[in-house]
């Protein structure tokens, strides 16, 4: 339709002028159609399906039907709250660890790496060239007893510190909450580094010169200028790390023990082994609501208009 108008060139433009504004107003909506259709089919419909399934009763063999069984939510929460708490806690610790490791890394790549910048960025993404599962399995080897990491931790008595923090219960690292958090941190670190890099790279170095000129020591300049200006990257990075980490189960399956089970692992079991679909759907929905509540509070608090 609009192609005809543009084909007409200058002459056609004056001719079609009267109905043009109308078309122009509708154009944004037409452009939204594919995205909206995608969301409807692959997000809204499955959500409604999942929601209705959580309120059904029955068994896999005999079939289930919708009985508006809301009590299952309360029962699930009462039965599985430690798993939820653990998931949120592990994800939060992994996010904090990733931020502490990722921020200096992103800062270094953005401001100090010079001509190595692109190579370093590729190195950050390089782990994605192998499968998530393989990489996590590799950590089993890295953290295995008798390995150099365990030896180092024992020598430096970091194992004692971890035991005191209840992140390990023996003198080893594998099959402990510590290993799960380490795995989560490692696996989601690139998701932290990339948005941080993007916002730090945009930071004008001259602003830091101005801060120094205005009596700020380097640390004050960081706190007053660099950090506030990189907040969009911090928020984006923490969300991209926290959300998938909270629902992750590969790390807890491969690196954890029976007392470090995360909720994703339980949902997996309910869906694929116990085949209790209503129970699994309920668990998924509760996780979704918890994450949503945390994220919304967090974004409000951090006050970055760009993301809300």
């Amino acid at each position: 339709m609009s192609a005809i108008g543009s084909l007409g060139g200058a002459g056609g433009r004056t001719k079609t002028a009267p109905d043009r504004p109308e078309k122009r107003r509708l154009t944004p909506y037409w452009l939204l159609v594919p995205g909206m259709a995608w969301l409807l089919i692959f997000f809204v419909v499955p959500m409604v399906f999942l929601g209705s399934q959580s309120l059904q009763t029955g068994s896999f063999e005999d079939g289930t039907k919708l009985t508006w069984n809301f009590s299952i939510y309360w029962e699930t929460l009462r039965g599985y709250w430690p798993h939820y708490a653990r998931s949120i806690g592990f994800a939060a610790l992994a996010t904090i660890a990733a931020l502490l490791i990722g921020y200096p890394l992103a800062y270094m790549i953005a401001h100090k790496s010079g001509r190595w910048k692109n190579i370093l960025l590729v190195l950050v993404i390089a782990p994605f060239f192998t499968s998530f599962l393989i990489r996590t399995l590799a950590w089993k080897t890295i953290l295995s007893s008798g390995g150099p990491v365990v030896w180092f931790f024992q020598q430096t008595h970091l194992t004692d510190l971890l035991q005191w923090l209840h992140l390990t219960d023996k003198d080893t690292l594998l099959a402990t909450p510590f290993a799960v958090i380490a795995g989560l941190t490692y696996n989601f670190l690139p998701f932290m580094v990339l948005p941080l890099y993007a916002s730090l790279d945009r930071l004008d170095h001259r602003l830091l010169e101005a801060a120094g000129d205005l009596y700020s020591r380097p640390f004050t300049a960081f706190r007053r200028v660099t950090l506030p200006l990189s907040m969009p990257g911090v928020v984006a990075g923490t969300l991209l790390t926290f959300i998938p980490a909270a629902g992750d189960y590969i790390n807890s399956v491969l690196l954890g023990n029976t007392r470090s089970t995360m909720i994703g692992q339980v949902i997996d079991g309910q869906f694929l082994r116990v085949l209790d679909y209503p129970q699994a759907a309920t668990m998924s929905f509760i996780l979704l609501i918890i994450i949503l509540a945390i994220v919304m509070t967090y974004v409000r608090r951090s006050g970055t208009e760009e993301l809300v």
């Binding site: 004008d204 001259r206 602003l207 010169e209 101005a210 801060a211 205005l214 200006l229």
Partner: peptide
């Protein structure tokens, strides 16, 4: 104190 060429105001 300096008035910078691009002003370098804190955005």
């Amino acid at each position: 104190n300096t008035v910078f060429q691009n002003y370098a105001l804190f955005p």
